[in-house]
Amino acid sequence: MLIILYSSKPSWADQVEEEGDEGKQLANLLASTLPPSKETVKGNIKTITEYKIDEDGKKFKIIRTFKIETRKASKAVARRKNWKKFGNSEYDPPGPNVADTTVSDDVFMVFISSKEDLNAQDQEEDPMNKLKGQKIVSCRICKGDHWTTRCPYKDTLGPMQKELAEQLGLSTGDTTKSAGDEPEPATPAAGSKTGKYVPPSLRDGSTRRGESMQPNRRADDNATIRVTNLSEDTRETDLQELFRPFGSISRIYLAKDKNTGQSKGFAFISFHRREDAARAIAGVSGFGYDHLILNVEWAKPSNN
């Protein structure tokens, strides 16, 4: 029989940080008389409580919890488990030393196989998959399923079409007339062949102002909710799991710390439909998630 101590990453909720003035006063008072560290074993959970003061005079209470696991092993292994530590670890207390052993973030094995393709077929209800078949973007040059600027035939077909268009009398000057919703395939980019400057107001598309961008943006804002009081460990995938049952999600933005990559505790979720968003608010607000109570509300429209 042997005892193995597992260190578990303490949740931030367990780590009490006494900050600010109050903490400083306390620290000054208690600088010399720090409570001794306590060790309690309750069932198979061992808790170590330590007190520490850092350079700023802030006092910390560090609670570490360990799970004690008893495992059966062969005699030789059990005997080795009781060996005394040596070398640079000679003075380490029993159990893993946090200085050189830490438990890192969850990683998953990414499985690569034809299985994944099967899974994709199962998810046919996913609206994004339906969209895949349709042409959202159409190239002006080759009519392909990509943006015009990304067209592989941009350099070959493009100029040819322009020349063709010019022969047909569709020079840049005339384009203002055809600036309606006529999807001219050969509409040349402003100021191309003739080299003449065309003011933006006269360029193609000047009449339909921001038509492509604005309405979407609006719809987006309308169906966006703000989730706060998220735990630090939250990931985008967690949010996706949590909110997917309410309807199709168009965008998830999880605020993260630039340096550590940890969540800042709030996120914006945009749904495709406002009703879904409303249901999500009703459903998730006050929901206990990862030992915190979530707060969900409509996102205030952003200023920009």
Partner: peptide
Amino acid sequence: TVANVWYSVNGERLGTYN
């Protein structure tokens, strides 16, 4: 310059060979 030996079960360092 050191060689380390660890308990694989919990990552506890048993010692170093200096």
